[in-house]
Design a protein around this nucleic acid. Sequence first.
RNA 1: GGAGAGGUGGCCGAGUCGGCUGAAGGCAGCAGUUUGCUAAACUGCCGUAGGGUCAUAAGCUCUACCGGGGGUUCGAAUCCCCCCCUCUCCGCCA
Length: 423
Amino acid sequence: MLDIKFIRDNIDRVKKACRDKNEDADINMLIQIDQERRQFIKEVDSLREKNNKIASEIGELVRSGQDISNLKDEAKAISNQIKDKEQELKELQAKLDLLLLKVPNIPDPSVPVGFNEEQNLDISEYGGKPQYDFEVRDHYFLGEVLDILDFKRGAKIAGSFFPMYKGDGAHLKRALINFMFEVHTLEHGYTEVSPPFLANRDSMTGTGQLPKLENDMYYVESDDLFLIPTGEVPVTNIYRDEYIPEAKLPVKFVTYTPCFRREAGAYGKDTKGLIRVHQFDKVELVKFTHPESSYDEHENLLKDAENILQRLGLHYRVRLLCTGDLSFSAAKCYDIEVWAPGTGKYLEVSSCSNFEDFQARRASIKFKSKATGKSEYVHTLNASGVALPRLVIAILETYQTKNGKINVPDCLKKYFNGKEIIG
RNA sequence: GGAGAGGUGGCCGAGUCGGCUGAAGGCAGCAGUUUGCUAAACUGCCGUAGGGUCAUAAGCUCUACCGGGGGUUCGAAUCCCCCCCUCUCCGCCA
């Protein structure tokens, strides 16, 4: 969420951000309602002031035992006026809040303006596409043949796009989670957390999933809870409505969670295998930083996520998202895309985002600045470190052998009971 | 699920029969005095948000906020209703 004062003073910038991000927030309406709202606040406040004065006068008269019936009638009249105005004010405020929640974050100046993913910028790449002297297979084929991925059974249990991992497939997933956790906690300095996998409305609004993405999430009606679409939600909300001591910044968390996404409207796209699924696992990195250092921390965050792919010996590229591809809440975002030789595509395994104070304002996460003596919002950042299914795809397809088996990457062997080959 | 207790400022903790209580007191924090240094002591400051004034400063001023929402009242942290959360006991279950 943006500061209403900031919007007031930067109407053109905000409008431009909406255009560049393809968001249709009604800024003119917002400004108009804000003006009306302030007018109402003025009126209501002055009525309240009057009423408070009368009330304390009455208090004094009562104590000295005098008659108060005249004053009482007057006060009653004002009190009724207040109630009416308050009601209208409340409606205005609700309207304003709703509009405000629909205004996207402003892209950082370093973000290229563009309409869609084709205008994303290639930043860097690691390794090269591996070459094979045999016909490469995709993970779907390999998974079925090796009996380590079972899509049919997953579909029977829950529905299509709920994959099941089995045997060495399930073990591979577990090994990857352990591997990533050890790197991020022991070497990159993140603190491990294991949060709830369901979250309430306040949490979902805090990180920006609500109100926009309600239909993309699984919802438990009886308890008004949502299954989390990413570990970012519970972990960023750890500090919702709290102050973080300035000296503790940056706070860095790593978490593992399953993620649940309805992918409404995405049918027909990436329909096969693990590329796009309703439930998947993710190791997620979340940072709370001082505003001054968030962009440095952003670069480090990217490196932390890249490090995982480098150790696994996977070819990938990093792209800077253009405005049109940038998510609603982000100011700047790098995507890491790993190469999947069998599928023949680069697959996004991590979005590395700086939200600046956008989420922090929504979720009210602050620190007391020693320099200014005032409360300020922290900056929040997150990145997958990294998402599992597409990582599994890249590993199966990259490390496949001529006879249809999979070599276990060196760095994973210790998490795989020393086993070197799957199949 | 049943019975009970409770939710007050960064923390602890008072709040009388509803009326200068945004809220005593303590701790922590900040600034200063004292001190050769440290400790201690002393003095002052010390919630958040939204308006107004205004240079989007300081200051001044108003309003709201004592888990959330609603109600009673001229007036509620204090009374009533609903909800949420925490704790204890019982039941049930991993």
